[in-house]
Design a protein around this nucleic acid. Structure first.
Lengths: 167, 167
DNA sequence: TACCTGTGGTTGATGCTTCAACAAGAACGC
DNA sequence: GCGTTCTTGTTGAAGCATCAACCACAGGTA
């Protein structure tokens, strides 16, 4: 590590925590993705889209709102929904009131795929995270993730990559 | 969410924690990546390679060992180092003892790039994570990330995607 | 030596994400 | 009404990760 006078470097402990944080979060994400692909042929990123749609009234949502709820860029969502549409899991149609808008709707096949994938996925999340943590650790994690999310949002202005802002 | 008798679904609280966890970790990663690219033109994934090399004796490491330390697949590392080599930040040469092996070495330009990128990156990590957490939360996070990493490793067999195992 | 197996590393194809540019419609001002 | 500007969503190109296949070499066995 380079040394510069004005920089407030991480302490040994912070560095250890940070690297373990990276290993743990990346490892969990990779593990869940691999399992979901193997079990149900769905990448995690697409799974989340199906979940959000399944919780929406009429299984339907505007693209923009769906992107918000998935913390995804419009671009990414557009590509992803095109893929999901080719699988037959989602269908798209125009909105009534707004000529620009597009509605994404979870199809029966999409709901079936989600119902099949969900138990294994949840079991994995539980086994890796919630079953491994003590009640005290869960309490702490609750506070930590909220703090972290807010701190990141404050620093990044809530920006989502791929969401083209002011030109 | 679908209901199936044998599945142990997440409680409301667990679900809330899990979704916030996803938002926080993904948000932090995206934020750090964006900052690092904007400030120094380095993707986070490549930054980590430079850091590991900079901490190695002689700024040199075998590809396989480097992949381990970066928790990266050989394939990914090979592509990444090829890119870093084209930037002039890393050079590759053959090993003396093993005709198969390859050594990656951090160049002066690579070290300079790292020295320029590190302060901003560390400041961001500090601002988003360590400065936002209370001492008690840091203690808790220390335990949580170690627990999580171990639980994931136990469940995934320590597998790294892209590391072709037994045929 | 010859063979066979395992390991280290690279390569090319494919897939998902991001960025930049664009098209089409809505909202506002005049 | 008409032009300007903002919003919504899509598209194509480029970047990085993953997967499968592959080559080259090492180590063991006969």
């Amino acid at each position: 590590m380079p040394e510069q006078p004005e920089t407030h470097w991480l302490t040994d402990r912070e560095q250890r925590v940070w690297r373990t944080y990276l290993a743990a979060t990346a490892g969990l994400q990779a593990h869940l993705d691999r399992r979901l692909r193997a079990d149900a042929g769905i990448p995690v990123a697409y799974y989340e889209i199906l979940v959000v749609l399944s919780e929406s009234p009429g299984l339907t949502l505007r693209m923009g709102r769906l992107a918000e709820l998935c913390r995804s860029s419009r671009s990414r969502l557009s590509h992803a929904v095109a893929m999901l549409e080719s699988y037959g899991w989602v269908s798209r149609c125009a909105t009534e009131d707004d000529g620009r808008g597009s509605l994404a709707r979870l199809t029966d096949a999409g709901l079936a795929a989600l119902r099949e994938a969900a138990p294994g996925h949840v079991a994995e999340v539980r086994a890796c995270l919630f079953d491994a943590l003590s009640p005290q650790q869960l309490d702490a994690l609750d506070g930590i993730v909220h703090t972290l999310r807010d701190a990141v949002a404050a620093r990044s202005g809530g920006a989502v990559p791929g969401c083209q802002g002011a030109p």
